[in-house]
Simulated scan of single mutants.
Amino acid sequence: MGPLIPNELIPAEWNFVLAILIGMAFGYIMEASGFSSSRKLVGVFYGYDFAVLKVFFTATIVALIGLNYMDYLNWIDLTQLFVQPTYLWAAVVGGFIMGIGFLAGGFCPGTSLCAVAIGKIDGIVFTLGLFIGILIFSESFSWIQPLYEEYNFGHVTLDKTLGISPYLIIFIFTIIAILAFYISDSIRNRVKKVFY
């Protein structure tokens, strides 16, 4: 068992159809969660709204548990799932640049497109900046390629790197999520007392 298209359970032509449907569902969930609002997104940095933290932690835990449970039941084969290679310096520099952009503009790439879909001007401006950044990156890639490809660790996963069970990692992440929810609620309550 495993992914549907590589195992020819459904035709390859469905690839883009499924991608569009999943993308639309993801966009709807982000909009329903309020992620088209830059004020809601940056609230995590100022301590007045932790919806972003809670939604993404919940999504991560559900995906971890769901994929491993389906693998346990032999519904899928986790070895067939693609793991993005880890390029250390590309991740560090890219994460730094994206973090600055997130703080300055109040959006990440996905949420900016969500804001564009409902006609928000700040989302449109941010997305234009995003495409300018993509253009600069692609045009200067030959110059930054050595930095981009340096320290390629390959397909890294926590369980193999640390040599522990994936189920233990799921348990640890679940505990971290519960603690993060508790701490974020405590911070939000203190900030509300100060500002309200």
Score class of each variant (00 low, 15 high):
residue 52 V to C: 04
residue 128 L to R: 09
residue 133 G to D: 05
residue 62 V to Q: 13
residue 139 E to A: 08
residue 107 F to A: 09
residue 4 L to M: 13
residue 158 L to Y: 02
residue 33 S to D: 04
residue 122 D to N: 14
residue 11 P to K: 13
residue 156 V to W: 10
residue 126 F to N: 11
residue 174 T to D: 11
residue 195 F to M: 00
residue 13 E to M: 06
residue 68 N to R: 15
residue 22 I to N: 04
residue 111 T to V: 06
residue 43 G to N: 10
residue 86 T to E: 01
residue 91 A to S: 03
residue 51 A to N: 08
residue 175 I to P: 01
residue 159 D to T: 07
residue 127 T to C: 12
residue 102 F to V: 08
residue 162 L to T: 01
residue 131 F to D: 07
residue 103 L to F: 08
residue 133 G to V: 01
residue 109 P to F: 10
residue 138 S to W: 09
residue 85 P to L: 10
residue 175 I to S: 07
residue 79 T to N: 14
residue 163 G to M: 00
residue 129 G to T: 08
residue 91 A to K: 11
residue 151 Y to C: 03
residue 174 T to R: 14
residue 53 L to R: 04
residue 195 F to R: 07
residue 166 P to Y: 08
residue 102 F to Y: 15
residue 192 K to V: 00
residue 135 L to T: 15
residue 7 N to E: 11
residue 166 P to G: 07
residue 28 Y to L: 08
residue 20 I to H: 03
residue 57 F to L: 14
residue 117 A to Q: 06
residue 38 S to T: 04
residue 79 T to M: 12
residue 149 E to Y: 07
residue 127 T to Q: 09
residue 62 V to I: 15
residue 9 L to F: 13
residue 106 G to C: 02
residue 139 E to H: 07
residue 124 I to D: 11
residue 170 I to P: 03
residue 103 L to W: 02
residue 92 V to T: 01
residue 90 A to V: 00
residue 96 F to L: 08
residue 195 F to K: 05
residue 174 T to I: 11
residue 156 V to N: 06
residue 98 M to A: 09
residue 9 L to H: 08
residue 11 P to D: 15
residue 69 Y to N: 00
residue 17 V to M: 10
residue 14 W to Y: 15
residue 193 K to T: 00
residue 80 Q to H: 11
residue 184 S to K: 02
residue 3 P to T: 12
residue 157 T to K: 04
residue 36 S to N: 13
residue 24 M to G: 02
residue 78 L to I: 05
residue 31 E to G: 13
residue 167 Y to R: 12
residue 27 G to S: 08
residue 137 F to D: 08
residue 16 F to Q: 14
residue 151 Y to T: 10
residue 191 V to Q: 08
residue 98 M to N: 04
residue 94 G to F: 04
residue 157 T to A: 04
residue 55 V to G: 12
residue 4 L to C: 14
residue 29 I to Y: 13
residue 112 S to I: 11
residue 38 S to P: 08
residue 196 Y to V: 00
residue 22 I to Q: 02
residue 50 F to P: 00
residue 177 A to M: 12
residue 152 N to Q: 10
residue 172 I to Y: 02
residue 57 F to Y: 07
residue 144 I to L: 03
residue 196 Y to P: 00
residue 121 I to E: 13
residue 122 D to I: 01
residue 58 T to I: 10
residue 67 L to H: 15
residue 87 Y to R: 04
residue 7 N to Y: 09
residue 135 L to A: 15
residue 95 G to S: 09
residue 89 W to I: 02
residue 40 K to Q: 04
residue 69 Y to F: 13
residue 159 D to F: 10
residue 105 G to D: 05
residue 46 Y to A: 00
residue 80 Q to R: 03
residue 119 G to S: 15
residue 72 Y to C: 01
residue 190 R to Y: 00
residue 167 Y to H: 15
residue 193 K to V: 00
residue 110 G to A: 15
residue 1 M to P: 05
residue 185 D to P: 03
residue 129 G to Y: 11
residue 190 R to F: 01
residue 5 I to H: 15
residue 149 E to D: 13
residue 151 Y to I: 01
residue 13 E to W: 14
residue 102 F to L: 07
residue 89 W to D: 04
residue 154 G to L: 10
residue 13 E to A: 11
residue 149 E to G: 02
residue 56 F to P: 03
residue 106 G to I: 02
residue 114 C to I: 05
residue 30 M to D: 11
residue 33 S to T: 12
residue 89 W to Y: 09
residue 118 I to Y: 12
residue 106 G to S: 04
residue 143 W to C: 00
residue 80 Q to P: 07
